[in-house]
C-alpha cells in the first residue's frame, strides 16, 4: 500500500490491519513517534491524520491510505520550527522526553481548534497525554505561548 507521511509517498508491504504506529517506526524508520501503551491510554504515539491528532496505535495502516500523515518529523523543521516546538524549547518542557512528541502533536492539533485556550481548556485537551516526569505545568505554559504566537499577538 501507499502511505503519505510528512509529504512523502511511501510504498509499504504490510498487512492492512497493522497499526500505523508499527508501520511508521518499524517499516519506515520514523521513530519520533513513540510506543507507550498500545491501547490509547497514554498519547505517546500521537500523530496527525489530515491535521487531526490521533493515536497511531489505534489506527490500521489500511485505514489511512488516502490520508496525509504527519509525525513530529514533519510538523516543523529545525530552521522553521512549528510554534508549538518553539514554545517547547522556550519553556524547556522536556525532561526525559519520551512523551514529548505526542504532547507536541496533540497541542498543535488542539490549537488548530482553539487558539485562545484557557488553563481549563488546556487541561481538558492535554490530560490524555501522560508524562511520567510530570512536566504538566510547563506543558500548559508552552501551549499558552504557542497559542499567542499562532494568534500573531
Amino acid at each position: 500500500m501507499k502511505l503519505s507521511v510528512n509529504g512523502k509517498s511511501h510504498d509499504v508491504d504490510v498487512e492492512n490491519d497493522m497499526p500505523l504506529l508499527w508501520v511508521l517506526r518499524d517499516e519506515l524508520g520514523i521513530t519520533g513517534v513513540k510506543y507507550g501503551c498500545g491501547i490509547a491510554q497514554c498519547g505517546a504515539c500521537t500523530v496527525h491524520i489530515d491535521g487531526q491528532a490521533v493515536r497511531s496505535c489505534q489506527i490500521a495502516a489500511g485505514e489511512v491510505e488516502d490520508a496525509e500523515i504527519t509525525t513530529i518529523e514533519g510538523l516543523g523543521q529545525p530552521e522553521a520550527l512549528h510554534a508549538v516546538q518553539s514554545a517547547w524549547i522556550e519553556h524547556q518542557v522536556a525532561q526525559c522526553g519520551y512523551c514529548q512528541s505526542g504532547q507536541i502533536m496533540q497541542a498543535a492539533s488542539f490549537l488548530q481548534l482553539n487558539d485562545e485556550p484557557t488553563d481549563e481548556d488546556i487541561d481538558f485537551a492535554m490530560s490524555a497525554n501522560l508524562c511520567r516526569c510530570g512536566t504538566y505545568p510547563r506543558i500548559r505554559e508552552a501551549v499558552k505561548t504557542a497559542a499567542k504566537t499562532l494568534r500573531g499577538a
Binding site: A40, A53, R55, D121, F124, A128
Partner: peptide, 23 residues
Amino acid sequence: LVNAGESRIGAEHILCSTCHVNV
C-alpha cells in the same frame, strides 16, 4: 479529564475520535 464539550464530540478540546477512531 475527558470533556466532550457542547459539541459533544470533543471539538473544543480533544476530539473523541482522537482515541475512538473510526474503523
